[in-house]
Amino acid sequence: MKVRLTCSVNQEPVDVLVDDYKTLLEVLREDLQLTGTKHGCELGECGACAVLVDGSPVLSCLVLAVESAGRRITTVEGLAADGRLHPLQECFADLGASQCGYCTPGILITAKALLDAEPNPSRERICEALSGNLCRCTGYLQIVEAVEAALRLGAASKQRQPLLAQSEPGAGQ
């Protein structure tokens, strides 16, 4: 049976009829043809399908499409803005953080949420935040370095940085 799903994906309104058994992952890839979001297990065991739902990184393979109604969803396709790559994307491409590139979208999305929430995460904190994203190629070091480089590039948008610097008690601990 088809159900109607209205939500926002990458800041654009979406209104589609989808099979009621589908996960958010399946709707993104199959119904919206946003194939940038990947899957490695479909059971919540790898992190490849991570997307942001209302700014928070979750695994789209374990989100019912019907439960995404009214939510704000961000995928890797929504990272670049105004024709420019996100600093994380620039740094990942430049610094070898993406080898086969298959885990990359999930990691970028997860790192974006971290940088949006915390102004100055330590290396340990970055590793912790990315610990739910398996990568088989890199050994993670170039990924972590790319996140640090993006931090230096000012990944968190300029207006939000000072605000969050005061409101994040857990950061860096």
Binding site: G44, G47, A50, P57, V58, L59, T110, A129, S131, G132
Partner: peptide
Amino acid sequence: VATPHLRNM
């Protein structure tokens, strides 16, 4: 528990 993503959910 599990991973950051799974704890978010």
